[in-house]
């Protein structure tokens, strides 16, 4: 059965794929200590990495953005386009990697409430881990509600 994007179920299904595949620990992936959020339209999902694992993903309200190192923010339609591209190509194609979305959009993708660049830089420092996570979504069935 397909999981609806975005939802806690969808994120946690991707999380199971991510946590159970050792190939995501090598090739520039590996230990990652970071608290992040995905802001999808008006909804917020907390994505925390501890050591080599992603912790259970929970939905939160907007106030939770103050506590994360950085959050990735796009309108729902843009997130859906990214997830569809990943599903179609088995991983993000050239125009849909997280770094590309960040630099290619006038408003950027990665933001923070605190504006502490040391914490915002974690998006760059752990970029491959986040890319692996979303690329893992190609291995689950997604529906868009």
């Amino acid at each position: 059965m397909a999981s609806v994007f975005p939802s806690e179920d969808w994120f946690n299904e991707v999380r199971s794929v991510f946590n159970s595949d050792d190939s995501y620990r090598g090739a520039g992936g590996g230990s990652c200590e970071c608290r992040s959020a995905m802001k999808i339209g008006r909804r917020v999902f907390l994505l925390n990495f501890e050591g080599i694992e992603c912790a259970p993903v929970v939905e939160a309200d907007k106030g939770a953005l103050a506590d994360v190192d950085f959050y990735l923010d796009m309108p729902l339609a843009d997130w859906q386009a990214m997830v569809k591209d990943i599903a179609a190509n088995g991983g993000a194609s050239l125009h849909y990697t997280l770094n590309t979305l960040d630099l290619d959009r006038a408003e950027g993708l990665s933001h923070s409430v605190h504006e502490d660049q040391f914490r915002e830089d974690l998006f760059f420092r752990y970029n491959q881990t986040f890319q692996f996570f979303f690329d893992a979504s190609a291995r689950i069935k997604t529906s868009f509600g």
Binding site: T97, N99, D121, Y126, N127
Partner: peptide, 19 residues
């Protein structure tokens, strides 16, 4: 894509040392 992304990760770590 992979070359630059992976180099950027390393580079961000070097910058973190300086900060």
């Amino acid at each position: 894509k992979a070359i630059y992304r992976l180099c950027a990760q390393d580079e961000a770590r070097h910058v973190a040392f300086g900060v």
